Amino acid sequence: MSALTLASAPEDATALEAAEAHHAHLVGQMAGHVGLLLTAAESDPRTVEGPRTGLVAFCERDLLPHAAAEEDTLYAAAHRLPDARLLVEALIGEHRRLAALVDALRGAAAPVAAAADARALQVLFEEHVVKENGMVLSLLAREPGVSLAQLLGDMHGRVGHHTPTDGAAGARDGRGDSTVNDQEPEETGCGGACGCGGADEAGVPELDVRQVPHALRHATVFGALDAVPAGGAMVLVAPHDPLPLLAQIEHRAPGAFAVEYLQRGPEAWRLLLSHH
């Protein structure tokens, strides 16, 4: 069944799809931040502070303002519908738990505590988004007396912030953009062709996206890269040569990351992304 058949108006069907895509983008960004933090905690706990700071900043800049704007618009409209009142109140409670987890993550005294808080935050947010998409957004889209498109427009106006990763062409659906030049980036070192690894990876966190759903993969990488400080690096493990992704990374942050191939297949491509 298409989204159009679940909406009372064509513009609401379009708004529903856009809202679900934006949620998927946020989920991917968080997964990238959390993945980088977890790998840092496992490989070298001394390197956790950077990913932890990046995840907290993402939540304060994007996640929590988004949640507050939802309460003022989408939740307020849904609460007026008798069948949705209890659901909305429960979701508001989840917003409070998300904020509490961000506070706990900010003040975590040990790397293992930060890792636990980050993973709990990710799981709760992913479950929360499923409820919003399947219950709140779909309910509002079907309601004849409600304009989901107008509500979402009001919500984004209230958020009043930018999302840096939205500038990446093709990030909305997780696929490469054919309008972007997919030329292979210049490499340094042996690129892993000789099997030596091509670079000193000690202490560099690794993000393996081979098990990440395709629709979330690019957003996950962008979220992780946002947590890499200048002078730092990240190893990306992909199931194929990620040329479209590399073009998007260059498009959203020209010249910010140097790329070095450490391994070229056949089952995995490993790339070192160094932040200038």
Results as ranks from 00 to 15, higher is better:
Ala3His: 10
Thr5Cys: 06
Thr5Ala: 14
Leu6Cys: 12
Ser8Pro: 12
Pro10Val: 11
Pro10Ser: 13
Pro10Thr: 14
Glu11Ala: 12
Asp12Phe: 05
Ala15Ser: 05
Glu17Tyr: 00
Ala18Asn: 09
Ala21Thr: 05
His23Tyr: 09
Leu26Thr: 08
Leu26Ala: 13
Met30Thr: 01
Met30Ile: 09
Met30Gly: 04
Val34Ser: 01
Leu37Tyr: 11
Ala40Thr: 13
Glu42Phe: 15
Arg46Cys: 15
Val48Ser: 03
Cys59Gln: 00
Pro65His: 05
Pro65Ile: 11
His66Tyr: 10
Ala67Asp: 06
Ala67Met: 07
Ala68Asp: 14
Asp72Gly: 09
Thr73Trp: 11
Ala76Ser: 07
Ala77Trp: 03
Ala78Gly: 04
His79Phe: 12
His79Met: 14
Arg80Cys: 11
Leu86Arg: 09
Glu89Pro: 05
Glu89Asp: 12
Glu89Leu: 11
His95Ile: 03
Arg97Gly: 01
Ala99Val: 06
Ala100His: 06
Val102Lys: 01
Val102Trp: 00
Ala104Met: 03
Ala104Gly: 12
Ala104Asp: 07
Gly107Val: 02
Ala109Pro: 08
Ala110Gln: 14
Val112Arg: 15
Ala113Phe: 03
Leu124Ile: 00
Glu126Leu: 07
Val129Ile: 10
Val129Phe: 04
Glu132Met: 05
Asn133Lys: 04
Gly134Ile: 03
Leu137Ala: 03
Arg142Asp: 14
Ala149Val: 04
Gln150Tyr: 15
Leu151Thr: 00
Leu151Met: 04
Leu152Ile: 15
Asp154Pro: 12
Met155Thr: 13
His156Gln: 15
Pro164Thr: 02
Ala169Gln: 03
Arg172Ile: 13
Asp177Gln: 02
Val180Phe: 08
Asp182Ser: 09
Glu186Cys: 14
Gly191His: 08
Gly197Phe: 06
Gly198Phe: 13
Leu207Met: 07
His214Glu: 13
Leu216Tyr: 07
Arg217Gly: 11
His218Phe: 10
Val221Met: 01
Ala224Ile: 05
Asp226Pro: 08
Asp226Leu: 15
Gly232Arg: 02
Ala233Glu: 02
Val235Lys: 07
Val235Ser: 09
Ala238Asn: 10
Asp241His: 12
Pro244His: 02
Leu246Trp: 05
Ala247Ser: 10
Ala247Lys: 05
Pro266Trp: 11
Ala268Val: 14
Leu271Lys: 06
His275Ile: 01
